[in-house]
Computed example of a mutant assay.
Amino acid sequence: MSSSASIVTIFSGSGIEASMVLSFLESNGIPARLEDEYTGTMAPHVAAGGGAGAVKVAVAAGDAAAAKELLAKRRSRT
């Protein structure tokens, strides 16, 4: 995923959850990246107000709809 492309956050959660979502998307051909991975893990009070410490999964804007659809289908199977 190009760093100059428009980026959309499609998931926020714990570091473990975000890593699983990232792997799932990449295994389905959608490039993704983690944001706030280190801050969310090492200093959660800095990553999000109230200490939530969310780690985010971001994709290129052009892949956002497909990524959201994949995640929705995955959630409906569990």
Results as ranks from 00 to 15, higher is better:
residue 24 F to A: 09
residue 60 A to G: 10
residue 55 V to G: 05
residue 47 A to F: 07
residue 1 M to V: 14
residue 11 F to R: 02
residue 30 I to A: 02
residue 10 I to Y: 03
residue 30 I to D: 01
residue 4 S to Y: 00
residue 47 A to Q: 06
residue 74 R to P: 00
residue 5 A to Y: 11
residue 3 S to I: 10
residue 29 G to Y: 04
residue 5 A to C: 09
residue 17 E to W: 00
residue 38 Y to F: 14
residue 5 A to M: 10
residue 27 S to N: 15
residue 30 I to S: 02
residue 2 S to T: 14
residue 28 N to K: 09
residue 69 E to Q: 13
residue 6 S to Y: 07
residue 75 R to G: 08
residue 57 V to D: 03
residue 25 L to W: 01
residue 6 S to T: 11
residue 66 A to H: 11
residue 64 A to Q: 06
residue 20 M to I: 11
residue 1 M to W: 07
residue 56 K to V: 00
residue 25 L to T: 00
residue 32 A to Q: 02
residue 72 A to L: 12
residue 48 A to I: 03
residue 22 L to D: 03
residue 49 G to E: 08
residue 35 E to G: 13
residue 70 L to Q: 07
residue 17 E to I: 00
residue 60 A to K: 13
residue 6 S to M: 09
residue 15 G to E: 07
residue 58 A to K: 11
residue 51 G to F: 08
residue 51 G to H: 07
residue 36 D to E: 11
residue 62 G to V: 06
residue 72 A to I: 07
residue 52 A to R: 11
residue 34 L to N: 06
residue 5 A to H: 13
residue 30 I to R: 00
residue 69 E to K: 14
residue 20 M to S: 12
residue 13 G to L: 04
residue 68 K to Q: 15
residue 14 S to D: 09
residue 32 A to G: 05
residue 48 A to Q: 14
residue 45 H to W: 13
residue 39 T to H: 05
residue 59 V to H: 01
residue 31 P to H: 02
residue 20 M to V: 12
residue 16 I to L: 08
residue 69 E to A: 15
residue 40 G to S: 10
residue 2 S to E: 15
residue 63 D to Q: 09
residue 29 G to E: 04
residue 50 G to C: 02
residue 77 R to L: 10
residue 20 M to H: 10
residue 52 A to K: 09
residue 20 M to N: 08
residue 33 R to A: 04
residue 24 F to S: 08
residue 66 A to K: 15
